[in-house]
């Protein structure tokens, strides 16, 4: 999945094709209780994602990954900066139902928590039909047919379509979440730590599914994760976020094989593997923070 480029490739690989998503100078700070400094979740973040491309967004907890992800789907506003998907300004007020729905069709999201992100009252089939009906994409019969196709797409059976979330495993639920996102035919799919709660073999299945979907449907993917191995597996390019700043950007293979920024190096060397020593990781982390 990762491109066969070697470590000698430049750190920056331009997005293939015209940009679908254009983010420029995104800023967001969260006010804290009195006496504490505001937390900067995004500090001048810019990036582009091309159609059919998977952009990985990595960084540790609190680096601002989720804030960026939530901005893309309209759950979070920016203090400054601009965000365009297919040329449309995401921050311009959406007046009226049609505008709101059109905007929702641009970007859909799969959430981290496979247990809480599905409506526990609706069966899988009902959830998919409801999404399509909300957008007026099909009549009841058509929506049902398309729901069947979507289930097939995410490799769930018709029988599983009749089940409710609590009857499904974590991996199955994330498949449902992906199907629900695809139900409105988005141009961008945001996965916010979408495989983090799953065990490794299930992760691999979901990653394969996401890769297949972006290839077949040509939709762009923003893949947010703290797990470098997972991002390396699926992303074409990566953006490394440290306390709201993009510290490194480039082809996934280049960034992970030959990290240039000290923070990226720290992240890469912190991944558990042979000879991994947690004490050393913590010590190096302290050293790094002290130097900044």
């Amino acid at each position: 999945m990762s491109t066969p480029e070697t470590a000698s490739a430049t750190a920056f690989a331009p997005a293939p094709g015209p940009a679908l998503v254009e983010a420029a100078g995104l800023r967001r700070a969260f006010r804290m209780p009195k006496g504490q400094d505001p937390v900067v979740a995004a500090n001048d973040v810019s990036f582009r994602i091309a159609a059919g491309e998977v952009l990985g967004l990595v960084g540790e907890s609190g680096s601002g990954k989720s804030t960026i992800a939530r901005m893309l789907v309209g759950l979070e506003r920016a203090d400054a900066g601009s965000l365009r998907i297919a040329g449309a300004d995401r921050f311009a007020p959406a007046r009226g139902r049609a505008a709101r729905l059109a905007r929702a069709r641009q970007a859909q999201m799969v959430f981290q928590d496979p247990y809480g992100s599905l409506d526990r009252r609706l069966s899988v089939q009902q959830a998919l039909v409801a999404a399509m009906r909300l957008h007026g994409l099909a009549d009841r019969e058509g929506a049902r047919r398309r729901a069947g196709e979507l289930l097939d797409r995410v490799r769930l059976t018709v029988e599983q379509g009749a089940l409710r979330p609590h009857q499904l495993s974590g991996g199955q639920r994330q498949r449902v979440a992906i199907a629900r996102a695809l139900a409105v035919s988005p141009t961008l799919l945001v996965l916010d730590e979408a495989v983090s709660a799953l065990d490794v073999s299930v992760q691999a299945q979901i990653l394969e599914l996401v890769d297949e979907i972006r290839r077949d449907e040509g939709i762009a993917v923003l893949f947010v994760s703290h797990d470098l191995a997972v991002v390396d597996e699926i992303a074409d390019r990566v953006l490394v976020l440290y306390r709201g700043d993009v510290v490194e950007e480039g082809a996934a293979s280049a960034v992970f094989r030959a990290p240039e920024h000290p923070y990226t190096r720290l992240l890469v060397s912190s991944v558990p593997g042979p000879g991994w020593d947690p004490h050393e990781v913590i010590a190096r982390r302290r050293e790094f923070d002290a130097a900044r």
Binding site: V73, G74, L75, R97, R100, L101, R103, A104, R105, A107, Q108, M109, F111, Q112, D113, G116, S117, L118, D119, R120, R121, A131, L134, H135, A177, R180, V184
Partner: peptide, 25 residues
């Protein structure tokens, strides 16, 4: 609960989410 955010992302209106989705739960 995150499913409420999921409905927001889906483009559902506040009234729709509150009355049709959250209330039954």
């Amino acid at each position: 609960r995150p499913y409420v955010d999921a409905y927001r992302v889906q483009g559902a209106s506040a009234v729709h989410i509150a009355v049709r989705r959250v209330l039954p739960n």
